[in-house]
């Protein structure tokens, strides 16, 4: 029971809700420069959707979608993407972190230059980092006081 996750009802409901949570996170991310939200909140929501999968389906099923190595790679990619966006200003011959891309029309979805790209980078970084933390804590479980499970798994 511990390896295969929770009961059938929880699994059925999870199949429906995970996609909705994921979509809500992406919505919060993409509208981060127009409405409340942004990369931080969206990233935490995405991490929560993956955690939802892990809690409902058990570790083995969930880690087929995104395991810890994948999370580490995604987090490094997010950090490097953020630095690369910051370096765009240097490549254009101006300052570091300057908003060099065209601003677009205000109040449009695709506007505001580098801000939406930075939001996406932070989103990847925060989501993958927090999921990696959770995976580390989930694989590692506290040994209860019986001698059969002393190796920490």
């Amino acid at each position: 029971m511990k390896e295969s996750g929770m009961s059938l009802i929880v699994k059925r409901i999870t199949r429906i809700t995970v996609s909705l949570i994921f979509m809500f996170g992406v919505y919060i991310l993409l509208h981060g420069h127009l409405t409340p939200g942004g990369g931080f909140a969206g990233g935490v929501i995405i991490a929560l959707s993956f955690i939802h999968l892990v809690l409902a389906f058990g570790k083995e099923t969930a880690f087929k979608r995104l395991d810890q190595v994948g999370a580490s790679i995604a987090e490094s990619f997010g950090g490097l993407m953020f630095l690369g966006i910051a370096l765009l200003g240097v490549f254009a011959g101006k300052e570091f972190f300057l908003n060099v891309l065209p601003k677009g029309t205000p109040f449009d979805l695709f506007s505001s230059g580098i801000i939406i790209l930075c939001n996406i980078a932070i989103f990847i970084k925060v989501g993958a980092g927090l999921f990696a933390i959770f995976v580390a804590l989930a694989i590692m479980r506290i040994p209860v006081d019986d001698p059969g499970r002393e190796d920490g798994r």
Binding site: G38, E75, N99, S112, G113, I122, K125, G129
Partner: peptide, 27 residues
């Protein structure tokens, strides 16, 4: 900046270094 949400505009444009430091701490 062209962003309507001023908090986003500050953390990602005016004060991008803050966010870079935050990313470093989280990493």
């Amino acid at each position: 900046t062209g962003a309507a949400n001023m908090v986003s505009a500050i953390i990602l444009d005016f004060r991008g270094y803050d966010t870079l430091g935050e990313a470093t701490v989280l990493f």
